[in-house]
Amino acid sequence: MALEYKDYYEVLGVARDASKEEIRRAYRKLAREYHPDLNQDSDAEERFKEVGEAYEVLSDPSKRERYDRLGSQWRAREQTSAGASFEDFFDRQGFDDHVRVEFGDGVFSEFFERLFGEDAARAGSGPLRGRDREAVLELSLEDAVAGGRRRLSLEDGRILEVNIPAGVREGQRIRLPGKGGAGRDGGAPGDHYLQIRLKPDPRFRRRGDDLDVDLAVAPWEAALGATVSVPTLTGTARVRVPPGSSSGRRLRLRGRGLPKQAGGHGDLHAIVRIMVPKHVSEQDRRLFEKLADESDFDPRQGQG
């Protein structure tokens, strides 16, 4: 990237003749506003660094003087000759007496390091660990129960392969040591936390650690009893529908729910839903009519 002139006064929003006190006040206000531990916006960290760099220069009289000299010459130059790049101008000003081999992704910009040398930043107060980051990882209920390896792309574009343990729970946090923000002055990187969120499932409704699932049965299965298949998070199971099961009856499949915090699993409840054919065939109609004629069952008995 080409070297660009940075207007530190503009960064802090102060006049060129601002006093030390004005500069400090502006810096403190902006530092509070953009501190990455306080502000979650994606560009807050970049702004915070910029503000810190501006303050580093403008709060130090000798750096400020050197910076001002460069700035006034650049502005004078801009007015007289259009088209010259700042990089060319900068190299001809004799400011480039600090030689750097390579520009890394240090705390300060290339502009700062070209102007003052890479070691010009005031010594910090010692190494400090980097910021912990956090993101939400949405999992299907099946994936939460089964676990497995996942490739994730983080906000900053990094791709991670993560081992999701089997049986993670809603709200549980998985720690990825050292995958957070970079440390300061040689400090260790922070950690990255993944907060588990369970995606709503079209079939299974969650009630704490228990799950509900609808179990469609035919009227005769409900009346006579049957063994039918029911979906679970780990495949299909068989459940016995006892004779005389009306809609809403809950059939419990013990331990087929979500993992519990204390260990073990919740239950899966298959809820009987009696289904009838939408289009009744001639034969079915005869049979239902016969049943209607001959049965003395009154589902509304006792309902007034």
């Binding site: 403190r28 530092a31 531990d37 400090l128 922070g190």
Partner: peptide, 30 residues
């Protein structure tokens, strides 16, 4: 995980010129 919380409080204290009570309060508010 307290290490992460500690580093955060310390960054806030150093960067914003807070005292200990202020840094702890800032962490709690965040």
């Amino acid at each position: 995980s307290c290490a992460g919380r500690l580093a955060k409080a310390e960054r806030l204290r150093r960067d914003l010129g807070l005292n200990y009570a202020g840094a702890v309060l800032a962490c709690e508010l965040v």
